[in-house]
């Protein structure tokens, strides 16, 4: 049932649809941009000094917002694809691992060099959890970002969302808390990204399959040696 586990020397498996791959890199880029611009918004380290017509801070904010809206769009699409996209079935299969203690043990052990990484769906449970967490941070950053946004732009989307976002604002205990939560999401990403990139590279080496290239080509492959071992 799962291509990644069926045999074949140097077998190649298709993992990510083109849509998911594009979305991934879009998000990778905008999240990086958001973390950098967000960091500046929180502690503006540059200042124009010379002229008040140079709206440096405002410009950082507008880039942040451009990235922000791309992230929101990409995030929404990604959630749609998770349920209804071409890869949806195998992704949903990961849920089985998520709720299986055994799978958790296998994955944790594999990360500590004990045994192989076997999974029912696309991702192992820990992997799935961390991607879920990332999505959680994306959603949280997007919502809190929108609450902050409605106070900066009062027409268009800002105006449309005004009332509902103010409701969110009061649930969160005021704008200061919203901003703090938004700030915390930045740390979520700052911590996730190195782990994420490291794990992508590490598991490619460790389990002898595709690495960074998967996200470009969409295909994963396993080296022959591994097949031998499995027998």
């Amino acid at each position: 049932m799962d291509e990644t586990q069926s045999g074949g020397i140097e077998h190649i498996s298709f993992v990510y649809s083109i849509a998911n791959r594009i979305l991934h890199w879009i998000r990778a880029i905008v999240i990086t941009g958001l973390v950098i611009t967000g960091f500046y918004i929180a502690s503006p380290f540059l200042s124009s000094g010379a002229s008040s017509d140079e709206l440096i801070y405002a410009r950082w904010v507008s880039w942040h917002l451009v990235f922000g809206f791309i992230l929101i769009t990409a995030g929404l699409l990604r959630i749609y694809l998770f349920f209804f996209g071409p890869d949806s079935k195998s992704e949903l299969n990961s849920l089985k691992d998520e709720f299986s203690l055994k799978s958790w043990i296998i994955q944790l052990k594999s990360y500590f060099f004990i045994g192989e990484l076997l999974k029912k769906g696309m991702y192992g449970p820990l992997q799935f959890l961390s991607y879920t967490m990332i999505m959680f941070f994306v959603v949280l950053a997007s919502i809190t970002g929108l609450v902050l946004y409605i106070h900066v732009y009062h027409q268009g989307i800002g105006g449309m969302l005004y009332d509902s976002m103010r409701l969110v604002e009061s649930w969160m205990g005021g704008l200061a808390n919203v901003r703090l939560i938004h700030h915390i999401t930045m740390w979520g990403f700052l911590i996730f990204i190195p782990i994420h990139i490291y794990m992508v590279i590490w598991s490619a080496i460790r389990f002898k399959h595709g690495g960074v290239d998967i996200m470009f080509t969409g295909y994963d492959y396993h080296l022959k040696k591994k097949e031998n071992e499995e027998k």
Binding site: P44, I56, Y57, H151
Partner: peptide, 14 residues
């Protein structure tokens, strides 16, 4: 929103 120093905020003058 109506702060007299808002121009300096946007300009990054702190």
């Amino acid at each position: 929103d109506h702060c007299e120093r808002r121009g300096h905020f946007d300009a990054g003058e702190f």
